[in-house]
């Protein structure tokens, strides 16, 4: 009884913290929300205005002359780089987890698993630096020109290929960051699933591979969905690594897979300094609005995944 009450209290604390967080952010950003309106979400014109002239009054708010805040390009950069990362990381993570759980000699398994967990624990700034020093020159000099040449017939892959900084690089660095998350969680689930589902499948005439694919993996699909949500969240909110490889684009929509981008999280960090020089405070409040939008996107993504979890029990396995 007491225990249940305690758990209920703890659970509601989590909810309350989230509400307080979003609530304060919203209150703080409220003048910016009023000032920017819908404009904020559909325009690509983030500009702090003439910071050395005097503030003027627009829409009942004190702002610098020429200030606009439109962040569509940030939303696009965030969603696209996250989408690339998740689309690549889920199959890679699943493959690696299956391999670790079933394909590796038992002696090697603990070592490989240890390395994967280590990869998941590396601070993101390390990934960013590595991306900057190693990945970008390699992609920029070798891979992107080749991709432009051979895959150029696909609309989004047409050039110019750029320098190596940009959307695809950000997506790849994010992929590297979230693959270990998915792999480690899924591997644990597969290993602790025990052998009874596999045995049942084998006894019915399934091959090892079929058992793995049709029974063992579906058996951990909740974990797969759950870890993919966490990974998506991490990719959406990743700051430093993306900041170092994205090229920090301002006010341009990505029009191919090589273009430089900015994401919401990295933009907040990179713009904070200059935004703080705005005497009206509207720039910082608009950055808070960016944070608010990021929060809302995360909440929407999580809710969609919840719905997916609700429906996954209906899984029917093919024909019947």
């Amino acid at each position: 009884m007491l225990f249940r009450k305690l758990m209920a209290a703890l659970a509601s604390i989590v909810a309350i913290v989230l509400l307080i967080l979003v609530g304060f952010l919203a209150i703080y950003a409220w003048p910016a929300i009023r000032f920017n309106g819908l404009h904020f979400l559909v325009k690509n014109n983030w500009s702090l205005g003439f910071l050395y002239s005097d503030p003027i009054l627009r829409h009942g708010q004190q702002v610098m002359p020429g200030a606009h805040y439109g962040i569509l390009f940030l939303i696009a950069g965030t969603l696209l780089s996250t989408a690339i990362a998740v689309l690549l990381a889920v199959p890679i993570g699943v493959g690696a987890a299956l391999f670790l759980a079933e394909g590796v000699p038992a002696l090697l398994r603990p070592w490989l698993s240890f390395f994967i967990e280590l990869l998941a624990a590396i601070p993101s700034v390390v990934y960013g630096l590595w991306g900057l020093v190693v990945v970008i020159p390699f992609l920029g000099h070798h891979v992107f020109p080749a991709m432009q040449k051979w895959l150029g017939f696909i609309p989004f892959f047409r050039g110019p290929a750029g320098s190596g900084y940009g959307l695809l690089t950000s997506g790849l660095v994010l992929t590297l960051m979230i693959v270990p998350l998915i792999t480690a969680t899924l591997r644990d689930a597969l290993v602790s699933q025990q052998s009874h589902l596999r045995d049942a499948a084998l006894a019915l005439g399934a091959s090892r591979y079929e058992a793995l694919w049709t029974v063992q993996l579906p058996g951990v699909r909740r974990v797969l969905i759950g870890s993919s949500i966490l990974a998506t969240g991490r990719a959406l909110g990743e700051t430093m690594a993306v900041l170092m490889v994205s090229g920090n684009a301002l006010n341009v929509m990505p029009n191919n897979i090589y273009t430089t981008i900015s994401t919401m999280a990295s933009f907040i960090v990179s713009q904070l300094d200059s935004a703080l020089t705005d005497p009206t405070g509207m720039a910082v409040k608009s950055l808070a609005e960016v944070a608010l939008v990021l929060c809302l996107i995360s909440i929407v993504v999580n809710s969609l995944a919840r719905v997916l979890l609700l429906y996954q029990d209906r899984m029917t396995f093919g024909v019947i």
């Binding site: 589902l197 049942a200 499948a201 019915l204 005439g205 399934a206 049709t214 029974v215 579906p218 058996g219 029990d313 209906r314 899984m315 029917t316 396995f317 093919g318 024909v319 019947i320």
Partner: peptide, 12 residues
């Protein structure tokens, strides 16, 4: 299996 009843029987 964590499938439907019918899918369980159909598996083999």
């Amino acid at each position: 299996f964590p499938f439907t009843i019918a899918a369980n029987v159909a598996y083999g």
